[in-house]
Amino acid sequence: MSAITALKQENIFVKLLNVLTMMASRPSGLIGLFLVGFHIVLAVLSPVLVPYDFTAMDSQAILSGPSARHWLGTDNLGRDILTRTMLGGQQALVVTSVATVIAIAWGGMLGVMLGLIGGWLENIVMRLVDAFLAIPWILFLLLIVSVIGLGLGVLIPTLAFFYGIPVVRMSRAATQDVVALDYITAARARGESRTTIVKKELLPNVLDVLLVEAAMRWSWMLLAFSSLSFLGFGVAPPTADWGLMISGARSFMSFAPWAVLAPVVALSSLIIGINLSADALAKALGIDRAQKTPV
């Protein structure tokens, strides 16, 4: 078997490391990777790091400003804002990253299939995709969440479904671009089986596009998730969640701005981090991302 492996290029970890190094070679990419990494580490470690329980109310300090006891102050129920901000990204990160993976998986597969098959089936599905995209995303999410109810069991599949739709379009276009190239024609003329062509020739070349797409979808999904929470259709109180925290603290923001600012900074830094990373990833893989519309 060693003979075969020698034919292959360097293994996947080396490749990953290469891409990461390339991403980090620009300051914006470095900042992006740092922000994303920081938030992931925080989400994992914060349950042991936080100074208080996220539901613990301090009746001595209600809407109190930053102090030695509460570094970032407290909210209207006297809960520690630092604690809640540190924990507030957990749900969002888990839900959106799982949903992103599912969305890219199904959207990518369907797109590749359509790009390969073509014909009337492709036409019909693409019409459907267009139709779905014509309905504002938030309306759809709201409708489903409001009728079926809250909870991760609903949110993950809903987000994954809805955000997979633009991925279908993307991966179909990417597939069609690759299929037009001579090395696919060569494989077909050689008589390779369809699975081999897809697995060996097509996917490695479409994967780049999907990877960038995944990073982008992730940031849109975070945006949608926190918007839903903010509107009261996401996770339920008293869970610590940025969107929920912002909406709760809004009424007091004229005299307790810290309660709003802490989750705002946390949420924004994560989304900006993902976006900067996505840009850097696209540049590292040689894909221009700014050319793309959000849909």
Binding site: A186, P204, N205
Partner: peptide, 21 residues
Amino acid sequence: FQNPDSSLNPRQTVGEILAQP
């Protein structure tokens, strides 16, 4: 083919390309 830039898969090594047939 005319253009080896498009007839060789950019993701495969020379070894992998020749191994296929």
